[in-house]
């Protein structure tokens, strides 16, 4: 190998190890588990770290207080449910029956403190729902 190649390899190795170090330490801060409500309770022990949990907003016990920048609701899966206490700007579209993803920590059994709340707002999904609704409309008897 000529000297330039050696220098180059050394430089690349140093850079790579620096990035690997950053990546390893970065993993700790960026690591977010994603699971559904059901999966959360199916796992033996709930992870300590930050969690992202997806599920549907339940009809019961729905308290949205956008004026107070908080919302408290049940997040329901197929078998399990979870009380979510969210603080922050309440998305105007938050309502029972819609799917949401919350990010935060599990405070105690079945109680989740969230600081991130995402509501479903995808162009793709919208189209699919519309298509479904359009097709359902066809089944309806017409006057």
């Amino acid at each position: 190998m000529n000297p330039a190649t050696i220098k180059l390899t050394v430089a690349a190795l140093i850079a790579l190890s620096a990035v690997a170090y950053l990546a390893l330490t970065g993993l700790a801060s960026g690591w977010v588990y994603y699971m559904t409500v059901d999966e959360l309770f199916a796992s033996e022990q709930a992870p300590e770290r930050r969690l992202r949990v997806g599920g549907m907003v339940g009809e019961e016990h729905f308290h949205s207080q956008p004026g107070d920048l908080r919302a408290r609701f049940q997040m329901v899966g197929e078998t399990a449910s979870l009380t979510v206490d969210y603080r922050g700007v309440v998305p105007p579209m938050l309502a029972p029956g819609i799917e949401v993803v919350v990010e935060g920590r599990l405070e105690s059994d079945r109680h989740f403190a969230a600081d991130v709340l995402l509501t479903k707002c995808a162009s793709k999904y919208q189209a699919e729902e519309h298509a479904k609704r359009l097709e359902n409309e066809d089944d309806r008897p017409r006057r």
Partner: peptide, 26 residues
């Protein structure tokens, strides 16, 4: 998320802090 769920059956997402810590310095 795809890698982690196929390797470890756990879906793990890497949030913004990861990118800010790793990609931004590069």
């Amino acid at each position: 998320p795809v890698i982690s769920s196929s390797v470890a059956q756990e879906s793990v997402r890497l949030g913004e802090p990861f990118y800010n810590r790793v990609v931004v310095p590069v």
